[in-house]
Design a protein around this nucleic acid. Sequence first.
DNA 1: CTACACTTTCAATAACTTCTGAATGGTTTT
DNA 2: AAAACCATTCAGAAGTTATTGAAAGTGTAG
Lengths: 172, 172
Amino acid sequence: MQVQEGRDKFIQAWGTLGSSWGINRTMAQIHALLLISHVAMSTEEIMESLGISRGNVNMNVRSLMDWGIVHKELRPGDRKEYFYAEKDIYITAMKIMRQRRKRELEPLIDIMTQLKQVKPDETKEGLALTKAVHDIDHFAQQADTLLNAMEKMSSNWFTQQFLTLLKKIKPI
Amino acid sequence: MQVQEGRDKFIQAWGTLGSSWGINRTMAQIHALLLISHVAMSTEEIMESLGISRGNVNMNVRSLMDWGIVHKELRPGDRKEYFYAEKDIYITAMKIMRQRRKRELEPLIDIMTQLKQVKPDETKEGLALTKAVHDIDHFAQQADTLLNAMEKMSSNWFTQQFLTLLKKIKPI
DNA sequence: CTACACTTTCAATAACTTCTGAATGGTTTT
DNA sequence: AAAACCATTCAGAAGTTATTGAAAGTGTAG
């Protein structure tokens, strides 16, 4: 496979996968494009490369920056903004995880907190509800703690300690 | 808050959260309904409770069974099928994780494997692509190993609990 | 064999999400 | 002060995904 073909395939694939990762297709394609570009790109260049509108680029680039996986670069004497992707894949993965925790886990915890207010009664229905709420809340708290801990650790920890840990737990 | 209000809120909330968990709203609502029901429910009852069509219940119940978080119960002398949810939240979470690994990680690994075939050249573009593919592939492999390990550990944990219980009932 | 009680499938459509392109707004150059 | 340049917003268009309801399929009992 040649490089140009590979690049196209990469962008295409990252875009498709994006959907199943909860990132929309265009956002993922822009991210892919920037990931494999060795220079920062302007809005125009992104529009051109992917054949999408200015508004679309603008919105999605902004989301990518919110997530902290794409950054802006300003060049002296140039009013355009240039964008480049975080190149460390572990940091990138961490930031994506962080967003997902926000979107998936936090609302869950909030709602369970509310539902713990349900006045327990002794009907079977009441007990089933109370148990479900309790279990889910407990689980969500644990997952949250775990993800928080992982986030605090550096990509350094990841590359070194994490592998060691994996080797230890693997042969169960 | 009263029990009935709590139940409605629970179903509503689980449905909303489902979307951000990659489960569709109805599928999640059916799951919620079964989670807090102390008895197995028929298609009719689910339709009625959630106000949705027969086809919709059928499709989503089938998906839930594919995921292994809802099961079917047959009653002698009754041709209807009754459905109930896995009540252990850890097992449920594990099964959901497993589906997500399938949908999110496996395609990623497949595509990176393909892209590793790109003939590396010495242009900056070529090198950036090669590096990105390498890094992502490495990361995906690690994540896959980790999730597999977790899955194994939990079933292990589960088996152990089960064995302990067995010993208590009938000492070998 | 026929009626019945259910489950499954599927084409049409409804609901939701993403994208466009034109309008708006702010800043710098002429 | 006007023109040029670029970012941002947003209402409607396009595209995608979920839902319905009716038809087809399956198995059982009379």
